[in-house]
Design a protein around this nucleic acid. Structure first.
Length: 1142
RNA sequence: CCGGAUGUGGUGAAAUUGGUAGACACGUCAGACUUAGGAUCUGAUGCCGUAAGGUGUGGGGGUUCGAGUCCCUCCAUCCGGACCA
């Protein structure tokens, strides 16, 4: 009786299905275990051998856990919304719903072939209304929530409104998202009174700035070819991930997820999960947290002294230049000798502690005010007792008049007030200031100038740096070409050069900018002032500074940053060395360990330590703040597409209103033609009758592919619930995904989004865990091994093809340059294979390498007849064979893809060798995490193993040959009890399989089975008592054959009455290994002389050092190698080895 | 350029704590059974060498009685991020 895998596999798959053997209950006394695969996008191409790798690993693990007594959830579903189906629809006229359904059916068939233990009753499809109803529902929760930075969690937006009504937004400043729809400046800070005075639309616009799902205008990645917006992770090097189409920046109204609010928690959460280092690394790189400082440099325009002048440059801003030197001195004196009250106030005001940027002893015109808030054009005076003096009174009057004329509001407090309750003074001050209109410092600062116009504007340049310690090494500033200050700070002399440069930058596409990185830039003519030594620092414009990161401006430290260094060298900007010997003049050194030189008050400090010192100083001076920056941006959440979840939103008067929960799901209406709407809106825009709804207009864009996948793992827990997305009872029972398996390609997309959604659902109290996945395993990619053949075409002078030849790999004489005549023609080839063609008719040879279908190649040998069938156009082509008559192909490792004809379909392998062979072979290839090229050849070995296993039970002729100590089915009477050798073979296998499976080492697991079967075959062991436990071990790896043989063993009722074939091996108990069968009494020790193994000695395990030494020294081979010398030392490691040192 | 991973026979790979390198397979070679073999079985198989022996885990150096494993350094390949200040 032979191993008829096709019948067996079909039979058991059917039986498992009919008996619902994989159905999982949410109610069990067993401990739970949740094994999850990343669900597939059902593409039209179907599965190739690379896809099931992860599924097989998880299937083995799930079955293993089940045998170990866990209640295992192992579901599967489809990520069924997405772009490709829609592209396909546009190109082929097949509706996405139809092609998706077809693809799913095809996937399902392929998956079923492999014999997975999925509980299909829990299947989810993200494109089904009963699923996406809850995607929309969670979206509404996101829309209805804000991130409370005070307690670092999401809360209902109603809490925020309540806070606004009491205190305005002073405790909840607007998140500085890069995509915020710009509010009028007066709405950025508001009091309770303001809030109440705003009309409904204004209030809604403000709330939109806080919502976790929000709509705003922003630069987006627009892909013209796909007609949609893409998320950052869907754009790679300036082209779309899917299809490789160019992507440009475009301003559009978009929905976003405010994932930036979760940046810190997403980062911290990585420490609590078991992901690979590289995965964590990728995620934290994507989040890109850096900490440093934002520093305001005052800008001088035009420069009063040469940039590298010896003298410190005077600084002025709102001061009269003519009187600056005098007033500055006075102001500095006063700054160093403040009154007690001033000191108290400054302690409370500095570093933006009151929410406003305040300067002290600030010069306005020729006056020195105690404090000034330039953003609000306000001065603050703390009055002492000497105002009775008429001269001072007069001075005060003039001063008040001057300030008033120049638009300043004077705010006065008395010393007493400050002494009594300084905090109350601050509260009052804050209230007054917040009611004053904000004056954007940068663009409108010229208003500050007194009417005479002598006074320069208080321009400041705000830069972000992670290295404030290098502030004395700043030799120039660089701002992005798009920086808002460009126009203002460009001097008339530099205007032309700057305009030209900006035009040049604009002419360059994103791709060009990335592809060729040459150093370019232009000087603005203006200088910034180093706040510590007053040195003038030239301000340059260059495209190497990006507007989107930090403040779009940097302080350049050429001795410490390589890009700055190259820039300085290129434009001959002198370089200041602040790191002594660490800088060699050849390249920058970004060290933090150097001792600072040429660095004013931080001279002699180690750089690392100076960072904090400088930040503190900057904060004290009110010109800088500690700042954390993230690379991560909010995630674009709308797509101008049809095949996705509709938003449950309607627009009225440009305000977005959520639909009521009772209206969910908002079903995706059927459309036959998927044309984009006007203004790059999605196709739904064209559906007038659907679009107009309840006096408003529906949002016509749809959600992106990652919406459904951000929470699908929760739906599996409670897939049929039509009242909740997942009941609390179910999510509490199943909790985190214990093991998540999938590819690395989702490292920064899906994994971050789903982690955010989980944290959000946790925040609002709907689930009780904060991280979705406890452990993540990334399966490696299986890459294809392509076969290529070399083609030569003979072209005539008018470019016609005269003949085609294919040259086998080793027939270089027909392809080498050597074989060509001066005209470039291989005469030998023509003479031998194309005798009817005249050499003079040939203009040239055209060489190319063509992919051939790997399925018609055996190893490297092409089946030429099959090839001609496949490509009938080559029916008359000549084939130049090897000497032995074979035709050999070239080999190339590349991604498995239909276009390279290197895909191998699991179906055909299952058909040829069976699912069990296929499963075990995929595992046998190597570690799951590793990428490897597919090679079908080795599958024979695994197949042979299963046949060999089969032969332990059945003889081809005799039939069943297994025996048992109880009566066997063939009635041959009692078999023998297992021997020690057999028990040892079994128990060491149990031990190893348990360990290997637990640590995901399935490749060594498979080889362990092979060793065991080889040993049992050598021992001629056919005993049920040995074979039955072995089958249980094997069941996770090769479930069909294990189930079949297990049933065979149980066919004959045993005396104990436990027979009958109804119990599945899936519910057997995983065997336990017993130490006593593994015990050895002796061991063959390798004996090394000076570390080189020379012989082997079998010694008792309990031998002592002394006994060993005696035996070893007596040994003939050892004596020979000692050559009469005395051993210095004999090292004896029990159960390992012996080493004799001479 | 930065970060991560990986480098072991003709091939896929093993070696879990520093202790006989190459388990288990593929392939190849030889043999058995056979009309035949692309079925099955047996044996051999890192490299050099007839052999004794030498040599060998990307290269070089180090620690150790002993290194694929630990340390330093260089090189190569793959993956990810790339002007992130």
């Amino acid at each position: 009786m032979e191993y008829r895998f096709r019948d067996i596999e079909k039979k058991w798959q059917q039986w498992w299905n009919e008996n619902k053997i994989y159905k999982v209950s949410n109610d069990s006394a067993k401990p739970k275990y949740y094994v999850l695969d990343m669900f597939p996008y059902p593409s039209g191409a179907g599965l190739h051998v690379g896809h099931p790798l992860g599924y097989i690993a998880s299937d083995i693990y799930a079955r293993f856990k089940r045998l170990k007594g866990f209640n295992v959830l192992h579901p599967m579903g489809y990520d069924a919304f997405g772009l490709p189906a829609e592209q396909y629809a546009i190109e082929h006229g097949i509706h996405p719903a139809v092609s998706t359904e077809n693809n799913i059916n095809n996937f399902r068939k392929q998956l079923d072939n492999i014999g997975f233990c999925f509980d299909w009753d829990r299947e989810v499809r993200t494109s089904e209304p009963k699923f996406y109803k809850w995607t929309q529902w969670i979206f509404l929760r996101l829309f209805d929530s804000f991130y409370n930075r005070q307690n670092k969690k999401a809360e209902p937006i109603s809490n925020l409104i309540a806070a606004f009504e009491i205190e305005g937004n002073k405790n909840h400043p607007i998140p500085d998202s890069k995509f915020e729809a710009r509010l009028e400046p007066s709405l950025l800070n508001f009091s309770a009174k303001d809030w109440k005075s705003f009309d409904g639309k204004k209030q809604q616009n403000i709330l939109m700035e806080y919502r976790l799902a929000y709509c705003g205008y922003g630069e987006v990645n627009w892909c013209e070819a796909l007609g949609t917006v893409l998320a950052n992770d869907e754009v790679i090097n300036g082209v779309s991930e899917r299809g490789g189409h160019p992507v440009v920046k475009k301003k559009l109204r978009q929905w976003y997820l405010r994932i930036t609010e979760y940046a810190d928690r997403l980062l911290e959460g990585l420490q609590k999960v078991d992901f690979s280092e590289s995965m964590k690394e990728m995620q934290s790189n994507w989040i890109g947290k850096s900490s440093g400082a934002e520093i305001d440099f005052e800008i001088e325009k035009p420069p009063l002294t040469p940039p590298k002048g010896e003298q410190a440059t005077p600084r002025y801003e709102t001061a009269f230049p003519s009187l600056y030197n005098i007033t500055k001195k006075l102001a500095e004196e006063k700054r160093h000798d403040p009154t007690h009250e001033e000191e108290i106030m400054w302690g409370l005001l500095r570093a933006n502690k009151a929410g406003f940027h305040i300067r002290r002893q600030h010069i306005i015109g020729s006056y020195i005010v105690d404090f000034a808030c330039l953003d609000k054009l306000a001065t603050i005076e703390i009055d002492g007792g000497y105002h009775d003096d008429p001269v001072i009174q007069q001075y005060d009057k003039e001063r008040t008049r001057f300030l008033k004329e120049n638009g300043f509001t004077e705010i006065r407090f008395t010393n007493e007030e400050v002494r009594k309750d300084a905090h109350a003074v601050i509260v009052k001050l804050t209230e007054i200031l917040s009611q004053l209109p904000s004056v954007p410092r940068k663009s409108e600062s010229s208003k500050v100038s007194p009417s005479g116009g002598d006074l320069e504007g208080a321009l400041t340049l705000r830069v972000y740096t992670t290295r404030p310690d290098t502030i004395f090494g700043v030799d120039f500033m660089v701002i992005a070409p798009e920086h808002e200050l460009v126009e203002e700070i460009t001097t008339s002399e530099q205007k032309r050069a700057v305009d030209e440069y900006i035009a040049y930058v604009k002419s360059r596409s994103e791709r060009e900018r990335m592809a060729e990185k040459k150093i370019s830039g232009v000087f603005t003519g203006s200088y910034a002032l180093n706040p510590f030594d007053g040195r003038a620092i030239p301000i340059w414009i260059s495209e190497y500074v990006l507007i989107g990161y930090g403040t779009g401006a940097i302080m350049a430290v050429p001795c410490g940053d390589q890009r700055d260094f190259l820039f300085a060298k290129h434009f001959n900007i002198p370089i200041t060395n602040i790191i002594g010997n660490y800088y060699n003049g050849e390249e920058a050194n970004p060290t933090k360990d150097a001792i600072l030189e040429n660095s004013g008050f931080i001279n002699g400090m180690v750089m690392k330590d100076a960072i904090d010192v400088v930040i503190n100083k900057l904060e004290e001076m009110g010109i800088g703040i500690r700042k954390v920056n993230y690379k991560m941006r909010d995630a674009a959440f709308s797509r101008q597409r049809y095949w996705g979840e509709p938003f449950p939103i309607i627009w009225k008067d440009e305000v977005a209103y959520p639909l009521d929960e009772s209206e969910l799901p908002v079903e995706l209406p059927h459309m036959d033609e998927l044309k984009p709407g006007e203004e790059a809106e999605g196709p739904l825009w064209n559906l007038k009758e659907w679009k107009n709804y309840k006096g408003g207009i529906r949002e016509v864009n749809t959600m992106p592919g990652y919406a459904g996948s951000s929470w699908y793992f929760l739906r599996y827990m409670d897939p049929d619930n039509n009242k909740e997305f997942c009941s609390r009872k179910a999510s509490d029972y199943w909790g985190q995904v214990d093991l998540y398996i999938g590819g690395t390609e989702h490292a920064v997309g899906h994994l971050l989004y789903s982690r955010m959604w989980t944290k959000f659902l946790f925040d609002i109290g709907l689930i009780s865990h904060e991280e979705p996945y406890k452990r993540l395993v990334n399966q490696g990619m299986i890459v294809g091994s392509s076969r290529l053949i070399k083609r030569i075409q003979l072209l005539s002078h008018d470019e016609n093809i005269l003949g085609t030849a294919f040259i086998s790999m080793n027939r270089d004489e027909f392809t080498d340059i050597d074989g060509l005549d001066p005209a470039g023609i291989n005469k030998k080839l023509v003479n031998l294979y194309f005798p009817s063609i005249e050499i003079t008719d040939i203009k040239q040879h055209s060489f190319s390498l063509l992919h051939v279908d790997v399925n018609i190649v055996d190893g490297n040998e092409l089946d030429v007849e099959e090839y001609k069938k496949w490509k009938p156009e080559y029916i008359d082509a000549k084939f130049v064979f090897e000497d032995d008559g074979s035709f050999l192909c070239y080999e190339r490792i590349e991604k498995m893809s239909k276009r390279y004809f290197n895909t191998v379909n699991p179906n055909s392998l299952c058909e040829k060798y069976g699912a069990d062979t296929f499963r075990m072979y995929e595992m046998f290839l190597g570690p799951v995490e590793m990428s490897k090229p597919w090679d079908t050849k080795g599958i024979e070995g695994v197949h042979r193993f299963l046949k060999k296993l089969w032969r332990l039970f059945f003889d081809d002729i005799k039939g069943p040959i297994w025996t048992t100590a109880s009566p066997s089915p063939s009635g041959e009477g009692k078999g023998e009890a297992p021997t020690d050798a057999e028990l040892k073979a079994l128990h060491k296998t149990i031990k190893k399989i348990e360990e290997d499976t637990e640590r995901f080492s399935f490749n060594t697991g498979v080889s362990t089975f092979m060793i065991c079967v080889n040993e049992l075959t050598d021992l001629k062991c056919h005993k049920k008592e040995i074979l039955e436990p072995l089958l249980i071990l094997l069941a996770p790896y090769a479930p069909h054959i294990a189930e079949e043989l297990y049933a065979e063993l149980r066919k004959a009722p045993s005396p104990s009455g436990e027979g009958g074939g109804e119990a599945s091996i899936l519910d057997a108990e995983f065997p336990k290994w017993n130490e006593k069968y593994l015990k050895e009494t002796s061991k063959a020790y390798p004996v090394a002389i000076n570390g080189k193994t020379r012989t082997e000695l079998t010694l008792a395990l309990d031998a002592t050092q002394q006994q060993v030494e005696e035996i070893v020294l007596k040994d003939a081979i050892v004596t020979k190698w000692l050559e009469g010398k005395q051993p210095k030392k004999i090292i004896y490691v029990k159960n390992k080895m012996i080493n004799v040192v001479v």
